[in-house]
Simulated scan of single mutants.
Amino acid sequence: MSDPAERFASLTMLLEDPHGLTVEGQRADQPHEYLLVLSNQICNGLQRGLTICTEIDQMCGGSQ
């Protein structure tokens, strides 16, 4: 397992991807199928983020 600071850096990098996806999804002319893909990618990123948050919490002696 890596250092909590390294995991936090990974978390902040991970958060950049969903931000880009949300910006792309704001276009009014997106087909519904594409919005579903974007939504799934955001959801997957958030789940990975939760995993990293849990790891950081455990490394730092938290209670999550």
Rank of each mutant, 00 (worst) to 15 (best):
Q41M: 05
C53D: 07
V37M: 13
L35E: 06
G20H: 03
I56R: 03
N44P: 02
N44G: 07
P18L: 00
G61C: 09
Q30E: 04
L14G: 02
D3N: 13
T54C: 12
T22C: 08
Q41I: 00
A5R: 11
P4Y: 12
I42F: 00
S10N: 13
M1P: 10
A9Q: 05
I42N: 03
M13F: 01
M1E: 09
Q41D: 07
N40W: 02
L50S: 04
L36D: 14
L50C: 05
E16N: 04
E16P: 00
D29A: 14
C43Q: 13
L38V: 08
S39Q: 09
T12H: 03
M59S: 10
E24S: 11
D3R: 09
Q30L: 12
D57G: 03
P31M: 12
R48H: 10
Q47E: 11
C43F: 08
G62H: 09
E6P: 03
R27I: 08
V37R: 12
P18E: 01
P31L: 07
G45Q: 06
G62A: 13
R27M: 15
P4R: 12
L21A: 09
L11N: 01
C53Q: 10
M13I: 01
I56E: 04
C60W: 05
G25E: 04
S63V: 02
L21Y: 02
L21K: 10
E24V: 01
V23S: 09
P4F: 12
E16I: 03
F8G: 01
P31K: 08
S63I: 01
P4T: 15
L46P: 10
V23Y: 03
H32Y: 05
C60V: 09
G62K: 15
G49M: 06
G25M: 07
G20M: 07
R48D: 05
L35I: 02
P31N: 11
A9R: 04
A5M: 09
M13C: 01
G45D: 03
Q26K: 13
D57A: 10
I56A: 06
F8V: 13
N40T: 08
N40I: 05
E33A: 14
N44I: 00
R7P: 00
C60R: 13
G49A: 12
T22S: 08
A5Q: 10
S2I: 15
E16Q: 06
A28Y: 14
G61F: 06
A9E: 06
N40R: 13
I42Y: 00
G25R: 01
F8T: 10
H32I: 05
G45A: 09
T22Q: 08
L35K: 04
L21C: 07
M1N: 12
Q58Y: 10
I52P: 00
A28Q: 15
R27E: 14
D17P: 00
E24L: 13
V23E: 15
T12C: 05
L21T: 02
E16M: 07
P31H: 11
L36F: 03
L15A: 07
